[in-house]
Design a protein around this nucleic acid. Sequence first.
RNA 1: GCGCCUGUAGCUCAGGGGAUAGAGCGCCGGCCUCCGGAGCCGGGUGCACAGGUUCGAUUCCUGUCAGGCGCACCA
Length: 561
Amino acid sequence: MSDIVEEIRVGLAHSLVGALKAAGEKDLIKVDHVPDFTVEAPREKEHGDFATNLAMLLAKPARLAPRKVAEILVRNLARNPAWVEKIEIAGPGFINFYLQRDWVCQAIPRIIKESENYGRVKLGKGEKVQVEFVSANPTGLLHMGNARGAALGDSIAAILDFAGYAVTREFYINDAGKQIENFGLSLEARYLQLLGKEAQVPEDGYHGGDILESARGFLALEGDRYLASGPLERRCALVKYALAEKISAIKKVLEDFGVHYDVWFSEQSLHDGGEVQAALDYLKEKGWIYEDEQALWFKATSFGVEKDEVVVRANGIPTYFAADIAYHRNKFQRGFERVINVWGADHHGHVARMKGAVAALGYDPAALEVVIMQLVRLYKGGEIVRMSKRTGQFVTLEELVDEVGRDAARYFFVMRSPDSHLDFDLDLAKSESNDNPVYYIQYAHARICSILRQYGEQGGVMPQPSSVDFIILQEEYELALARKLADFPGEVASAAANLAPQRIARYLHELAGLLHSFYNSHRVITSNRELTMARLLLVEATRITLKNGLGLLGLTAPERM
RNA sequence: GCGCCUGUAGCUCAGGGGAUAGAGCGCCGGCCUCCGGAGCCGGGUGCACAGGUUCGAUUCCUGUCAGGCGCACCA
C-alpha cells in the first residue's frame, strides 16, 4: 500500500505550514489559523508538478498581496528536500513546485512489488459496509435498469473493498406483497388456459411469455392435479414453483454478468420471522406510529418528510415500507456501519422516508446512503423502446449480454455517472463494438502482454526493479505514463469517497491512451540493455495497473484479443 | 403545484472554487522494411439564461427556462 503522490503532497503541505509558522514568528504574516489549503497537481504541466493556493487564501487575513505572501512563504520554507528542483510563484499567487524529472519513476518498483494489490488504500479502515443493489422483483426477468444497477453496485462494492472497507454485497428479494399476489393470479390464469379453461391474466398482472413458460413447466411437473384444488392452494403451489425458478434464473444471469452476491435476503423471511412486527412494535413504543382510518401510519413528517406513510393497511397487511423498515433495522443490527443502496430514480421518493425511519429506529440516518441512478432509455432502430412489464416488451439483461457482450455492456453502464440519464443505443453498442472504449483499454493490456511474451520467447528474463536505474527514462511519453501510474491509488480513493466508478473508467481510458502513445513512439525491446530493462518494468507496471483497474469495473483483462 | 436528477463541442458524455475546460463518435488530412493498425499524430469561435457569494465561478447559492423521474392503504 503506497501512494507516492499522496506522500509528496503531505510532505509539501507540512513544509508550507512550517513556512507559515516561521513567517509568523518573524511577524511577516499575521494570521490566527492555517486556512484549508490544497496541494494539487496543476492541469498545465508548465505550472510544475504540484501547486498550492495557500498564499491566495492568506492574502486577505494577512492584509497582503497574494504574490507578496507567496514570496514570504517561499523564503521561509525550511531547506527544500533534494527532490524539489525549483519553486516558482505564478499567476494570481500560486506557488508551483517542480520536482526532479524522474520522481514519478519511483512508483514503478512499488507497483511491481505490490502487484495485484497496487492501488489499495486504507480509506475505509476496515469499516463494515453493505452494498445492496438490483433487488429486483423476482417475478420477472432482469431488464436494462437492473443491468445498470448490477454494474454500478458491483463496481461500487469492488472499489470500496479496494479502498479498505469490509464489503458485503446483498440482494433483497421482494418475494412478498402485492406483486406476488399478482404473480400468482397471472400464473394461475396461464395454467388454467393451458388446461383449456376460461381464464384471464389480470389487467395489471404479468403478461410476458416467461410467465406462460413457468406455467408450462409447472404443468409438466404437476399435471392437472391443481385444477381441482382450492384457488389459494393452487396459487401458492404455482408461486412457490415459479419463484424458485425465477430466482435461480436471476442468479445465473447475474453470475454470467460477473456479479456475485454474498447474501440473498428474502423479504418474506422478515414477515415469517416476526421482524416486521418487532420493528413496528419498536416504533410504536417510541411514539412514531399512529392509527388513522384503521391504518397504521409512520410519522415521517417528524423527520422532515412531506407526508406520513402507511405501514399497515386497513386490511391489516403491512406495506412494503414496513418490511423495508424491518430490513434496514436488520442491516444495522448486523453491525454495518455504512449501508449503501443503489436505487433507480423511480424510487427516489422513498429515500427521505427511509432515512426518517432509520432515524426513528435510533440509528444515524447519514449511515444510510442511497445512490440514485437515473433511468436507462433504450434505443433500437433509432426508436425508443418502452420497457413495460404489462406488455412484456423489454430487453433483458440476458439478451444484452448475448448481443453486446458482458465487458462492453458493463463498461457502458459504469463509464457514466449514476446521475446521468443514460441513452443506451443497442444497435450502436452492437455495430460499433470494435470501437467500444472498453476494447481500447483491454487492447492496451493485451498489447503489453504481447510484448512481454515476445521478450520471454527471446529468452529474456524480467529484471528485478532494484537492479534497474529508471533515470534512463527521459522521454515525455515515458514520464507521462509513469506519472499516470502514480495517480492510481488517489483515483481509487476518490472513486470510493464519491461512490463514483466512472472515475476509474475515465482513468483507465487515459492510462490506456498514454500506453498507446508511448508504444507508437518508442520500442520496449531495444538494443540498449539498460533502456530495455527500464521500459520492460514500465510497461509491466502499466499492465498491473490496467488489470487492477479493470477488475474494479468487473471487466476482464485479456492477454490476447 | 411540490420534490429529486439533468442542461458542457454537430452527437453521446467526462470534469469541476483557481492560472489556456476534456474524451469518444462523426468529418478532413497524415503514420506500418520495426515489439499487435482494435493503434498513433494533426485539425475545435462549446459550460441553457439572469442575479448573488468569492481575491477568483463553468463549478457553490437563488431564480427563470427546458427535459427526465417521482408525489398510492404499489413496490
